[in-house]
């Protein structure tokens, strides 16, 4: 590849400036298609421009075909998002953003998932450690951990009610419509993310580092605290944030277990009733129509995007290893 001469001056530019140029062209094209009221034109433009970029990358017909097919998926993922953003009414969003009822929903929608993420990590990290070191019967435990990933989430909610509701394992605890119930449901569906991310992190720590710690005097606790734990901390944090993000977006299990939740709301200094954000969006859609729910969804999307950016930032090398590979 190195010996080929590039056909277009594209390669002469830095990667950053090429990306910037592509984004700018796409935005202009989208604005033009949107103001014409023909977003379909933009979809066609994306696929054609991807084909053009595939051609410019000099991988021949193969490159063109791959770029074209890939761009169809990008259109399916990105175009609704662009249209969603473009079609929001700023005044409606501002009105919703000032609504105390929405504040409660956003508070609950970030706070309860945080509790679930903490629970997933606190109990998931020890399990992840054992899974990474191996034991008899491990495949069975692995399947159990991954079970919530394949169970439909409304079913997960039903399972929670049977397990921890009336006549369940925690007789003193009422789960239906309570914060503990909501956190239980969120933990059930999000713990696999925390366990699997932490487990991968533990697996990437060389056994010999732990041996080295032990043979030079550290107890199993000390070896974990000073060597294995710090080296796996990035995976644990990632797992926690993933579990948090998964919980923020959870609908099915929460709708079954805790459709409306009564909880203590510090800004008001009293107990209030609200719904988990995805449930609230669905509710608004049923009652207020697309425009109202769109405004609430935009606010929730902003929160989710912030979480997503946080995940990306936490999982880049530079932020967590202090420049040490």
């Amino acid at each position: 590849m190195a010996t080929r001469t590039p056909p277009l001056p594209l390669h002469a530019l830095g990667r950053g400036s090429v990306a910037l140029a592509v984004v700018a062209v796409q935005l202009v094209a989208f604005a033009a298609a949107y103001s014409l009221g023909r977003p379909t034109l933009y979809a066609v433009f994306v696929v054609l421009s991807a084909a053009g970029l595939g051609f410019a990358s000099r991988r021949g017909l193969f490159g063109v075909a791959m770029a074209t097919l890939g761009s169809v998926l990008l259109v399916a993922l990105g175009l609704p998002l662009l249209l969603f953003a473009a079609r929001q009414s700023p005044s409606l969003i501002a009105e919703k953003a000032l609504d105390p009822g929405v504040h409660r929903v956003l508070y609950l929608g970030v706070y309860a998932p945080l509790l679930a993420a903490v629970a997933s990590l606190a109990l998931g990290v020890p399990l992840a450690y054992h899974l990474s070191r191996g034991f008899t019967g491990q495949p069975l435990v692995e399947s159990l951990v991954d079970l919530p990933l394949v169970v439909p989430h409304s079913v997960a909610g039903i399972i929670i009610l049977f397990g921890f509701g009336q006549g369940g394992a925690l007789p003193g605890l009422s789960v239906l419509g309570t914060l503990p119930g909501m956190v239980l449901a969120l933990t059930f569906v999000s713990a696999p993310y925390a366990v699997n991310a932490a487990r991968e992190a533990f697996e990437s720590v060389d056994d010999r580092l732990e041996y080295a710690a032990r043979v030079h005097g550290a107890s199993p606790w000390q070896a974990f605290r000073r060597v294995t734990g710090p080296l796996a901390v990035r995976g644990m944090v990632t797992g926690g944030v993933l579990a948090w993000a998964r919980s923020v977006s959870e609908f099915g299990a929460v709708a079954v277990v805790a459709y409306s939740v009564e909880f203590f709301y510090p800004p008001a200094g009293e107990r209030v009733i609200a719904q988990h954000a995805p449930v609230f969006v669905y509710n608004t859609y049923l009652q207020g129509g697309l425009d109202e729910s769109g405004a609430v969804a935009a606010l929730l999307l902003a929160v989710s995007a912030a979480i997503f950016l946080l995940v990306r930032w936490l999982t880049t090398d530079a932020t967590t290893t202090q420049g040490v590979a």
Binding site: D206, R208, L209, Y211, A212, A213, V215, H216, R226, V227, P230, L231, T321, Q322, V324, A325
Partner: peptide, 12 residues
């Protein structure tokens, strides 16, 4: 005490 083939120094 143990000296390992690939050093096994604590990277952090």
């Amino acid at each position: 005490a143990f000296v390992f083939q690939d050093y096994a120094l604590f990277p952090h």
